[in-house]
């Protein structure tokens, strides 16, 4: 199939970007969206045009590197699917597809479709961990954990840190991402000691990074490739409230 792409091109963080139109010819429907871009890039290189830059690594939906807002939806709109897993069979011959970077104040564009998501790392640095130095851990089976608790925790822990939630949120809020981590650790017995401190610090850092506030749009959940539920946001709200009451 043949497609028309309108792709955001931006030389660097200072330059103002713009949309550029390219033709994607002879696209096979088994290709992933990124493989389609590879094909376009190969053509661009032949023409002497610098290829379109985009982040990617694992190409199987787990590293969280790939991003892109495709046709106005982060990761392209197929449920539970990252851009790298999105197949071209989801598009029709002749479609025009607009491809933009994830946009947020906290995600400045580095080049073309590549953005700087280090703000998310810094939120984790603020408290998204259990302070367990290597070596002192008790036997792994010393504390039994109810299977349901462990499963709930895993549901939240599945977040790949892609930032699509931020990209999709009308407020560019990182609540889903942050709440996934808060919830993952607050659910497990291992996360109890630092529970209050963790949520206080992570919420503070989230604000400092310039993410927006949550208006409970639930748009984040709709695009999240790991289908992280917004119930985690409710949980984080609860945790934050309790933490501020307890002052532990």
């Amino acid at each position: 199939m043949n497609l028309t792409l309108r792709v955001w091109r931006q030389k660097n963080s200072q330059e103002k970007g713009h949309l550029e139109t390219y033709q994607a010819k002879d696209i096979n429907e088994d290709m992933s969206f990124l493989e389609m871009l590879d094909v376009v890039n190969e053509d661009l290189i032949k023409e002497g045009v610098e290829p379109i830059h985009f982040d990617h690594d694992c190409r199987e939906g787990i590293c969280g590197a790939c991003s892109l807002v495709i046709g106005g939806i982060a990761h392209g709109g197929k449920k539970g699917c990252t851009t790298c897993e999105l197949r071209m069979r989801n598009f029709k011959d002749g479609d025009t597809i607009t491809v933009e970077p994830f946009r947020a104040k906290a995600f400045p564009v580095i080049r073309d479709l590549v953005v700087d998501r280090s703000s998310m790392d810094r939120v984790i640095q603020a408290g998204g961990f259990v302070s367990a130095n290597t070596g002192g851990a008790p036997d792994a089976n010393a504390i039994p954990v109810h299977k349901d608790v462990s499963d709930t925790s895993m549901d939240a822990a599945a977040c790949i840190g892609c930032g699509a939630c931020v990209a999709a949120c009308k407020n560019a809020s990182a609540m889903l991402f942050v709440s996934a981590k808060v919830s993952h650790l607050a659910t497990l017995p291992q996360g109890q000691v630092e529970r209050e401190n963790r949520v206080r610090k992570m919420v503070a850092q989230m604000g400092a990074e310039g993410f927006g506030n949550c208006s409970n749009y639930y748009e984040c959940e709709a695009v999240c490739p790991k289908e992280i539920s917004v119930k985690n946001i409710a949980k984080m709200n609860r945790e934050f409230f309790k933490a501020n009451v307890s002052k532990k």
């Binding site: 259990v130 002192g136 299977k147 462990s150 822990a157």
Partner: peptide, 8 residues
């Protein structure tokens, strides 16, 4: 101890 949610 780090909170890795292994299957149980």
């Amino acid at each position: 101890a780090q909170g890795v949610p292994f299957a149980r």
